[in-house]
Amino acid sequence: MAKILITGTFSAGKTTLFNDLIKELNLSGTKYTYLSDTARECPFPLNSSQTIDTSNWLFGKQVERESLVTNSFGDGLIICDRGTPDIAGHTMSLNLTGSKYEVIIACLSEWTKTYDLIFFAERNKHIAIRADGVREINTELQALVEKHITEFLASFPNTVRLPQETSDRKQTILQHLRVAGLL
C-alpha cells in the first residue's frame, strides 16, 4: 500500500487532474481509493475567515479519514486530495504566533511525512476561480496560500512540482508512480 497526495491552493486544477488520473488508473486496473478533501464538511469558517479552530478540525478530520482507510484498504494506492500541506498553507496565512499555532504546524508537518509521494499543483493564472459555495473568489488569498504551501513543502524531498498543463501533470504523476513501483 502507498499513500500519495495531490495538493495545491484552491482552483489550481486539482479536481480536473484527479478525474483524468482516475480514468487512467481504471484503464490500467490499478487498485486505488480516493479521499476527497475535508473542507466541504467543516463546520467552522473557511478561507479568509479561517481560524485556528478551523485548522485543528480540518487536521483532525484528515488524520481520521486517512487512518481509517489506511487500516482497512490493504494493498493498493490511497490518493488524497489537498491534505495537510493545504491545511498548513491556510493556517500559515492566518499570520498567527503562539503555542497553538506552533503545535498545529508541527502536527501538520509530522503527518505530511506519512505520504509516500506529494504532488504539488501550482495555480494556473489562466484558470479563473469558480464560485462553488465553498471557495472564496480571492486571487490574493489564493496566491498567499500557495506561497505558504510552497514554503511548507520545501522540507519534504518527496514533493514533485507538477507542470502547468493538465495532460503533462497526469503524465508526470503516472511516471513517478511507475518509477516508484506503484503501478
Score class of each variant (00 low, 15 high):
residue 15 T to D: 15
residue 16 T to Q: 10
residue 17 L to E: 02
residue 17 L to N: 01
residue 18 F to P: 00
residue 19 N to W: 02
residue 19 N to R: 14
residue 19 N to F: 01
residue 19 N to G: 00
residue 20 D to S: 12
residue 21 L to P: 00
residue 22 I to Y: 00
residue 23 K to M: 02
residue 25 L to S: 01
residue 26 N to I: 08
residue 28 S to F: 02
residue 29 G to T: 05
residue 29 G to W: 06
residue 30 T to Y: 01
residue 32 Y to F: 15
residue 33 T to C: 07
residue 34 Y to P: 01
residue 34 Y to M: 06
residue 35 L to K: 02
residue 35 L to Y: 03
residue 36 S to W: 04
residue 36 S to T: 13
residue 36 S to P: 09
residue 37 D to M: 03
residue 37 D to W: 02
residue 39 A to G: 04
residue 40 R to M: 08
residue 41 E to L: 14
residue 42 C to E: 07
residue 43 P to K: 09
residue 43 P to C: 13
residue 43 P to S: 12
residue 43 P to M: 11
residue 45 P to G: 01
residue 47 N to V: 06
residue 47 N to M: 15
residue 49 S to G: 08
residue 49 S to V: 01
residue 50 Q to F: 09
residue 52 I to M: 15
residue 52 I to S: 10
residue 54 T to L: 06
residue 55 S to A: 15
residue 55 S to I: 07
residue 55 S to M: 07
residue 56 N to T: 14
residue 57 W to L: 08
residue 58 L to V: 07
residue 59 F to I: 03
residue 66 E to L: 06
residue 66 E to S: 04
residue 66 E to K: 04
residue 67 S to E: 13
residue 68 L to H: 14
residue 70 T to Y: 12
residue 70 T to D: 13
residue 70 T to P: 00
residue 71 N to P: 00
residue 73 F to H: 05
residue 76 G to K: 03
residue 76 G to Q: 04
residue 78 I to G: 03
residue 79 I to V: 14
residue 84 T to Y: 09
residue 84 T to S: 15
residue 86 D to L: 08
residue 88 A to I: 07
residue 89 G to M: 08
residue 92 M to D: 03
residue 96 L to M: 13
residue 97 T to I: 10
residue 97 T to L: 06
residue 97 T to D: 12
residue 98 G to A: 08
residue 99 S to K: 13
residue 100 K to T: 05
residue 101 Y to R: 06
residue 103 V to N: 15
residue 104 I to N: 09
residue 105 I to G: 01
residue 106 A to H: 13
residue 109 S to V: 01
residue 111 W to T: 02
residue 111 W to V: 06
residue 111 W to M: 00
residue 112 T to Y: 05
residue 112 T to H: 04
residue 112 T to N: 11
residue 112 T to F: 06
residue 113 K to P: 02
residue 114 T to K: 11
residue 117 L to C: 01
residue 117 L to T: 04
residue 119 F to A: 02
residue 120 F to Q: 02
residue 120 F to H: 12
residue 120 F to M: 03
residue 121 A to V: 04
residue 121 A to N: 11
residue 122 E to N: 09
residue 123 R to G: 05
residue 126 H to V: 07
residue 126 H to E: 15
residue 126 H to S: 14
residue 126 H to P: 00
residue 127 I to T: 11
residue 127 I to K: 11
residue 127 I to V: 06
residue 130 R to H: 08
residue 130 R to Q: 13
residue 131 A to C: 02
residue 132 D to M: 10
residue 132 D to K: 12
residue 132 D to A: 06
residue 135 R to C: 05
residue 136 E to P: 03
residue 137 I to Q: 09
residue 139 T to N: 14
residue 139 T to D: 14
residue 139 T to C: 05
residue 141 L to P: 05
residue 143 A to I: 01
residue 143 A to E: 14
residue 143 A to Q: 12
